[in-house]
Design a protein around this nucleic acid. Structure first.
Lengths: 343, 343
DNA sequence: CTGAAAGCGCTTACAG
DNA sequence: CTGAAAGCGCTTACAG
């Protein structure tokens, strides 16, 4: 039916010959309505093209069923993939996603938090965004659940979901050592982030098991150019590495590009290992050996944690770590006879 | 200040010793308030951490300042990049983005439209999503503006922003012909989409200028695997192409991977040209010659068109086409002595 | 099972 | 410039 403007429960009530409350009940799961009434209302709603106004409903119930999703670094394929799954999972649970792009500039998250709160979001998910204590405090004050995805902040009292980064770094170390590498350098995502620190520490720990230490550790700052320059610095040094562990795939691709441009063959001259296993890692041009962050499981854990916290605001924050398996491809020399199951 | 739960204008009014209306006026740009009153209210708001409830405001004004963004294909890097800019541009204009993932399954958009309407979005942007006449009609009925990004639907009466696909296809044809290619095949994104049809038609038109016709045209269905198989089919044919124009970069990468795996050298044995110029196209591993869809300009046009339509609901739909330049890299043999400015 | 009424947190005429 | 009041479209006790 052609109608102008929005149609309200009042319109439907009029057409169906019932009260507005009755209309509301028909659209409220669990409310008691006589079958006959329901049928009349449904028919009227159908003709008019009625749908309850979610905003009005949110005002009354105090639940907007909107989740604020704060993201950054969309050029890194890990995030689009995560967003897609996060969004799908939330949609399936009856929630909707209000999207915010954040730079990691100081104060950015504070600014966004204001807008998030203004829209009465039921919860917040941040992906790779640093959170200041201010923000943490304000969320706690307002009682709004927040889960950090792919980033932890020890001591912040905030829930987080990450892969087991410390163990992940160690797995890379063991794998490279088993493959006969001895001069192993690291280009970290960023040592200022827990993710970066943990992966670097894991590598150091793992190498120590073999009596080794990282040849060098540089910060890639999540940035392709910075990572490529770091790689160049490493291989131009007096003692160049025989393997580079790069903190994420996104930078690892840039590292491989740069190495090849300089005439180094991967993995014959130097091995490269990434972290994430973005879809692109499997593409022919790179065929990158990398740690797989299981996006699906990380997303599920994130949503579960958030919804549990929404259901029970007094629930304690929790940090979930998901095991990341090493995916062997051809960008790194492989240990002869395979690697032990410990990986 | 530590407060429990949401703080309302009423709370602020009480603390500031003014009426609730006064508080509202302080937060309504253009409303008349005495400086002294404003100061008192601002101070009180600050102490309590008050922000007007956007949902309540939306109910009254009839403007939610929410834009529904419907996307698909996030694995194709063109979309994350577009989302990032769309989101930033909208945020800068005081709008917020409610994100919906769509498959291109039939009826999917209808389903989403219901949710979009329930949240009283002020406008809708769809990226690479097909829209049925049903949806078009319902949007028109409700009077909700919709702009299609990177997809047109002639005759639908819907606004759209695309690059000049027809001309784009022609530019590719001229470029390849000038480069000495004669057996030019095409792997289309999908001939069911206007984007796909236009690029294919442009290629055909451009080749006709040189007395040529496409060697073959296959559908890649926006899909890497399908595109790779299509490429294999093409080069295994009795008369293999000397160039393949692939309908988007995302598939072009897969095509190059497959060709290389089969032992074909790009561009020595065969040229490959893409469409989009996603960031990855410039990466060393592919260095893809491609048509640049100017994301920034396309996004600006999309937002301008949508906001103009929101401001004036009676405004006629418009189709904007943005010129796409050819970016020469090394995946295709280049014409000797450069190409004429016509490209 | 059903309707009348209150109320969610705001904005906006309307008087003063 | 300011406050009291109406009202946006709903949900939800409360009676009946």
């Amino acid at each position: 039916m052609s109608t102008t403007g929005r149609v309200t429960a009042q319109d439907v009530a009029r057409l169906a010959g019932v009260s507005q409350s009755a209309v509301s009940r028909v659209f409220t799961p669990g409310a008691s309505v006589a079958p006959a009434t329901s049928a009349k209302v449904q028919a009227a709603a159908q003709t008019l093209g009625y749908r309850p106004n979610s905003l009005a409903r949110a005002m009354i119930t105090g639940k907007s069923r909107i989740i604020g999703l704060v993201v950054a670094y969309l050029e890194n394929q890990f995030y689009p993939v995560a967003i897609e799954r996060l969004s799908n999972t939330l949609q399936a649970r009856g929630y909707h996603v209000l999207l915010f792009m954040a730079s990691n500039a100081a104060g950015e998250m504070e600014r966004l938090l204001g807008e998030l709160l203004a829209y009465q979001v039921d919860g917040i998910i941040t992906a790779s965004v640093a959170i200041s204590n201010d923000v943490t405090q304000r969320c706690a004050d307002v009682g709004i659940p927040l889960v950090m995805f792919n980033r932890g902040q020890p001591g912040s009292g905030l829930s987080s979901v990450t892969s087991a980064n410390l163990l992940g770094g160690r797995k890379v170390a063991r794998f490279l050592v088993a493959g006969g590498h001895r001069r192993i350098a690291h280009i970290s995502v960023w040592q200022g982030a827990s993710t970066g620190r943990d992966r670097a520490q894991g590598l150091t720990d793992g190498l120590a098991e073999a009596g080794l230490a990282p040849l060098a550790t540089l910060d890639g700052m999540f940035d392709r150019d910075t990572a490529a320059r770091a790689a160049q610095t490493l291989v131009e040094a007096a003692t160049p590495p025989d393997a580079i562990f790069v903190g994420n795939d996104h930078m690892a691709f840039a590292v491989i590009d740069r190495l090849r441009a300089m005439g180094w063959r991967v993995p014959q001259d130097i091995s490269v290992v990434g972290y994430d296993d973005v879809p692109m890692a499997a593409w022919g041009a790179y065929d990158l050996t990398t740690m797989r962050q299981p996006v699906g499981r990380m997303v599920d854990a994130t949503v579960e944690t958030l919804l549990a916290q929404i259901a029970d605001p007094h629930r304690a924050a929790q940090s979930v770590e998901i095991d990341a398996p090493l995916i062997q491809r051809s960008s790194a020399r492989q240990p002869e006879g395979g690697v032990d199951a410990g990986l």
